[in-house]
Design a protein around this nucleic acid. Structure first.
Length: 421
RNA sequence: GGAGGAAUGUCCGAGUGGUUAAAGGAGACGGACUGUAAAUCCGUUGCGCAAGCUACGUAGGUUCAAAUCCUACUUCCUCCA
């Protein structure tokens, strides 16, 4: 199975310029491809993982991947399919975020792989020194405003009667086009991949390469990952699922995948793991025979957590999971409790010797306010070391601890460890 | 620069002087059922134990009473030989 067949089978191809010619180019030797990541936050999230892993797939198939971080484009803001103008981010913040993303994107690729070694670039490097006149004359002349306005990605900004678009954001696509042209010229990069929302921006680059470099280059977009019911993917109770371990702990990350609904498991296995077709079919066979065992979810969570956080972190996450969901909390040993804390289970330590349950809930962030906390307790949503508690004057202290720790559960699956002085 | 229009809770969106902590929807959270699934059903969804407090772009004003009226400001949208 060649790389395109593999990607097709995984459902990873949404749109491409000339798939036949792309196949030819890929089979006739090493190709260079890139994908860009703009600093819109201080970390990437699970959505970004898709293009990142596709770069890896290409590298494993013998091609050269380039990760581009948008030190320049991040200052402008991509308007594609955004309902409103983005608030400006300060230059300093963009620089900080850019360097964080650079590290993150690099962890998935091999930079020591002979001709196929990955390359990491920052579009700030070739954009910062460009002057206005050159930009307008050399780049701007190749873009038709009429065509730009016809793009689906900016239509809602142009047509809605309560929003608009600034010249700044409208020009974004020129910068991304320039990136592709630049990488094509310097590194003979001939493929750009990105999410399906990036089609317009990628085409800007394809056109610019043709006009300025006289080269034929490819565009390949990946589908937007959604849940089985078509709703947005990548969010949990606590928000976005980040790749940064300090923002989303490996345990929460692992749990996110464990909670995948049955209808999406196969799709996610194809998109997010490097398991082969045969392996995935075997997993799905088991899954379909006994869905309640959640075999598919386990394989999924295990593979992705390994990839993003490493094996040790994954094993820790599994230990926590096993202790909390599989066993009887009361039977945990003192070592188990210690291990849970080391493994990174959400935890809060109090300097006091004892506190009421309500105070603990609020001060540890399990409940956002006293009122919420009371509601949870009265609503029978809180368990302490495995026992439901519905009395808000209940007090936690050394006396009712379990080997020095208190395991609180909110709802069905949110666990939090609390310890006292 | 001129003329007109808009700004409401997490989001969308109703509301044009009092019964409005603000309809409806989405989302979120909790409960039941389950398999840490989906679907379904029920409840909650500004803060406060409470009295009460704070909220409808910002700052003032009118009034017994304002999200609703007036003034200024800010931001956005539409049109202009």
């Amino acid at each position: 199975m060649d790389i395109i067949q593999d990607l097709t089978w995984r459902g990873l191809i949404n749109q491409s310029t000339d798939i036949e010619r792309l196949k030819e180019d890929l089979s006739s030797g090493m190709c260079t491809l890139y994908s860009g990541f703009d600093p819109t936050a201080d970390s990437l999230h699970v959505g970004h993982l898709v293009p990142l892993l596709v770069l890896k797939r290409f590298q494993e198939a013998g091609h050269k991947p380039i990760t581009l971080v948008g030190g320049a484009t991040g200052m402008i803001g991509d308007p594609s399919f955004k309902a409103t103008e983005r608030a400006m981010i300060t230059e300093e913040t963009v620089h900080t975020w850019t360097s964080k993303l650079q590290k993150q994107t690099s962890q998935f690729l091999s930079f020591d792989n002979g001709a196929c070694s990955a390359l990491a670039v920052n579009n700030y490097d070739w954009t910062k020194s460009m002057d206005v006149i050159s930009f307008l004359r050399d780049i701007g002349k190749h873009f038709s405003v009429n065509m730009m306005m016809n793009r689906e990605s900016v239509k809602q900004r142009l047509n809605r009667d309560d929003s608009g678009i600034s010249f700044t954001e409208f020009s974004y696509t020129l910068l991304q086009g320039m990136d592709y042209m630049e990488l094509n010229k310097k590194h003979n990069c001939t493929i750009q991949i990105g999410g399906s929302d990036q089609w317009g921006n990628i085409m800007s680059g394809v056109d610019l390469c043709r006009r300025m470099n006289g080269t034929h280059v490819h565009a390949l977009t990946l589908p937007l990952i959604t849940k089985a019911d078509g709703t947005k993917f990548g969010k949990t109770e606590s928000g976005t699922v980040w790749l940064d371990a300090t923002k989303t702990s490996p345990y929460s990350f692992y749990q996110f995948w464990m909670n995948t609904e049955d209808g999406s498991v196969e799709n996610y296995l194809k998109v997010y793991t490097f398991l082969t077709k045969d392996e995935i079919e075997a997993v799905m066979k088991q899954q379909n025979e006994a869905p309640h065992l959640r075999h598919g979810q386990k394989v999924l969570a295990e593979n992705i957590t390994d990839l993003v956080h490493g094996k040790d972190a994954r094993i820790s996450a599994e230990r926590i999971t096993h202790a909390l969901f599989k066993g009887d909390l009361q039977s945990l040993s003192a070592e188990d409790i210690q291990q849970l804390q080391q493994d990174g289970m959400p935890a809060t330590h109090f300097k006091e010797a004892a506190l009421s349950l309500l105070d603990v809930l609020v001060q540890s962030g399990i409940a956002p306010s006293n009122k919420e906390g009371r509601k949870l307790i009265e609503g029978n949503a809180i368990s302490h070391n495995g026992e439901k508690v519905s009395d808000s004057t209940y007090t936690l202290s050394k006396e009712n601890a379990l080997h020095g720790g208190h395991i609180l559960k909110k709802g069905k699956k949110y666990y939090h460890m609390v310890t006292f002085r």
